[in-house]
Design a protein around this nucleic acid. Sequence first.
DNA 1: TTGCTCCTCACGTCACGTGAGGTGGC
DNA 2: TTGCTCCTCACGTCACGTGAGGTGGC
Lengths: 276, 276
Amino acid sequence: MFRIGEFSRIAQVSGRLLRFYDELGLLRPALTDPQTGYRYYSAEQLPQLNRILVLKELGLSLEQIARLVERDTSADELRGMLALRKAQIEQALADDLARLRRVESRLRQIETHGQVQEPDVVLKSVPALSFLAVGDVLADMGAVRTLVQQIVTRAPMPDGIIAVVGHAHVYEPDALDVEVGYVLTGKAPATLRVSDERVLTLRQLPAVETLATLVHVGRLDDVHQTYALLGAWLEQHGYAIGGDARELVMQLPNAAETVVIEIQLPVRWGAERAGR
Amino acid sequence: MFRIGEFSRIAQVSGRLLRFYDELGLLRPALTDPQTGYRYYSAEQLPQLNRILVLKELGLSLEQIARLVERDTSADELRGMLALRKAQIEQALADDLARLRRVESRLRQIETHGQVQEPDVVLKSVPALSFLAVGDVLADMGAVRTLVQQIVTRAPMPDGIIAVVGHAHVYEPDALDVEVGYVLTGKAPATLRVSDERVLTLRQLPAVETLATLVHVGRLDDVHQTYALLGAWLEQHGYAIGGDARELVMQLPNAAETVVIEIQLPVRWGAERAGR
DNA sequence: TTGCTCCTCACGTCACGTGAGGTGGC
DNA sequence: TTGCTCCTCACGTCACGTGAGGTGGC
């Protein structure tokens, strides 16, 4: 019989761990003195503890280990747990590899360009959204801006956020195929009149698994610079564009001509730099 | 200005997260109504939040992020954090790879051999230890057993654990070059007399970085089976033996002839299956 | 007036580490 | 008797999630 200190020294674990496992019922000492509360462990408990430690190193939770250790478990249950764990580890590896690439990318940038910072591209997934909008083919960005102004002044919707969706099948600078309107959560009218020629009608923006987003803060005329940053980031990180661009207008041009627009691009893994 | 719900929906984060970051001072709302406590966020705060989210995805702690965001940080400090993070991720990757191999190994064993379980080999590192022992070259295991019996009966040390260290430079079955004695923590006598011919003297067991251990429970005669299991495990996991074997005797033969012995083998990475 | 949104506590998570304050054993 | 060991609380960790119970805004 070993007292807790000796047993913990042999097993190279803390006394606190042994007390904790006692409390959980995971490894009860062979004997506990009812007077003093002293715990006494037998030599045979060392392999029991080792089994727990091994399962823990595999990354199983103490709750899972308790199931495996207390009642003797079927091979099936053990296989199930290990298969689950395998999938979790593989996921963790993939995530950490992606993380490592991003950290290294930022480090390289500090080395080569100094303080210039990478754009803060955030990946999101979004559900399908109600979109009360009108589609049109417009001559240039100025026309888009005019249309937005028209909508917010003549058909205001305080709960909606102005969005511009660009259908850029083929990029034709003189013919922007866009939809402009409000993204809405909750109940939405079927139509909303802007002028005699223009009526917003309710449609759906499809759900997107992976949306790469970058926020533009500055002049509306400079939004293409942010697009360029986002595009470069995507290329560098092995993503390819996989759908229509969306622009969420969070702040319309103010007195200082400053806008805040979140650019959203649906993306998928490109072929050249597969990461998983 | 956006209320917290709208802002959280746009940014795809929970309201709780925004309140938490407010509390930490990491991202204070542009305006808080002193009457109602309502938080109002400005459009410009979206890129600020995104910056936080990006740094979080790199795996930095909120405390580190706070340092980077609150006061504007030098490139050096950022580089330091990222370099640290890089090392951590690389370590995590190595650990997870090793874990994955072990999980897969156990899964394969269930598939091929059913319930037969792998031995619970535990890796430890130990400091240098005081070893009050006598060295000898003995004819066979029986002689070792006799010597151990002699020591525990004629020179008992309640605080010591009996250990046998085997110097197996060349394996000669008829000439076992061993040291037998007590492993001690704390103060130890310089010598201890067992008989006229045998005196235990104090020496040091060197510290070992990586010790592969496996506990044998059963007959003393069967201890070689446990050695075989440990040896097979080492080979399978790419370790090579790197020092003298130690046997910690946790329980001497009892009425049922059962012993409990922890076998300890110093190991190092073998050449054929490097894991890092 | 009725929902919907927002507010502030406060507990729970996971596996222990780290004291605080007090007692047992040789 | 003096150290050393052991005991039982109980808080802290990290980044929020999840209610509970109550109020503000259109």
